[in-house]
Amino acid sequence: NKFNKEQQWATYEILNLPNLNEEQRKAFIDSLKDDPSQSANLLAEAKKLNDAQA
């Protein structure tokens, strides 16, 4: 299913963002699990935070 693929991709991407700390990473991944339909939005937020902390 589409959300499952998006969720897996977003999880992979978030795990590989270098500037997030473990707590932030875990929070994003927990949110992905809670609502896979928000995968794209959550990934965008994670990338923004990652860039802000660069």
Results as ranks from 00 to 15, higher is better:
Leu43Glu: 02
Gln8Met: 14
Lys33Ala: 14
Leu32Thr: 03
Asn41Asp: 13
Lys48Ala: 03
Asn41Tyr: 13
Lys26Gly: 08
Asn50Lys: 00
Asp34Tyr: 10
Glu22Leu: 09
Glu13Ser: 06
Gln8Gly: 05
Ala10Arg: 03
Ala54His: 12
Asn50His: 02
Asn1Phe: 01
Tyr12Trp: 12
Asn16Lys: 12
Gln53Ser: 06
Ile29Met: 10
Ala52Gly: 07
Glu6Gly: 04
Ala40Trp: 10
Asp35Gly: 03
Trp9Lys: 11
Ser39Met: 11
Gln24Gly: 01
Phe28Thr: 01
Ala40Val: 14
Leu17His: 02
Lys33Ile: 14
Asn50Phe: 01
Thr11Glu: 15
Leu49Glu: 03
Asn21Ala: 09
Asn41Lys: 14
Ser39Tyr: 15
Thr11Leu: 15
Asn4Tyr: 10
Pro18Asn: 05
Gln7Pro: 04
Leu49Ala: 05
Thr11His: 15
Ala10Lys: 02
Asn41Met: 12
Asp30Thr: 12
Phe28Glu: 00
Ile14Glu: 01
Gln24Tyr: 02
Ala27Ser: 11
Lys2Asn: 15
Asn21Ser: 15
Tyr12Val: 10
Asn50Met: 01
Ala44Trp: 08
Ala46Arg: 00
Ala52Ile: 12
Phe3Ser: 03
Ala52Asp: 10
Glu45Tyr: 08
Pro18Val: 09
Glu45Val: 11
Lys33Tyr: 14
Asp35Ala: 08
Asp35Leu: 05
Lys2Gly: 15
Asp30Tyr: 07
Asn50Arg: 01
Arg25Val: 08
Ser39Gln: 05
Leu15Val: 06
Ser31Ala: 13
Lys48Leu: 13
Tyr12Ser: 12
Ala54Ser: 12
Gln24Pro: 00
Lys48Glu: 10
Asn1Arg: 01
Asn1Trp: 00
Glu6Asp: 09
Lys47Glu: 07
Gln38Lys: 10
Ile29Asp: 01
Asp35Trp: 11
Ala44Leu: 12
Ile14Thr: 01
Lys5Ala: 15
Asn21Arg: 13
Ala54Tyr: 06
Gln53Leu: 05
Gln24Lys: 02
Glu23Ile: 08
Trp9Met: 15
Ser37Trp: 06
Leu42Ser: 03
Ala54Gly: 14
Glu6Pro: 03
Leu20Ala: 00
Ser39Ile: 15
Ile14Lys: 01
Phe3Gly: 08
Asn21Gly: 06
Ser37Met: 08
Lys5Glu: 15
Asn4His: 14
Glu23Pro: 06
Ala46His: 00
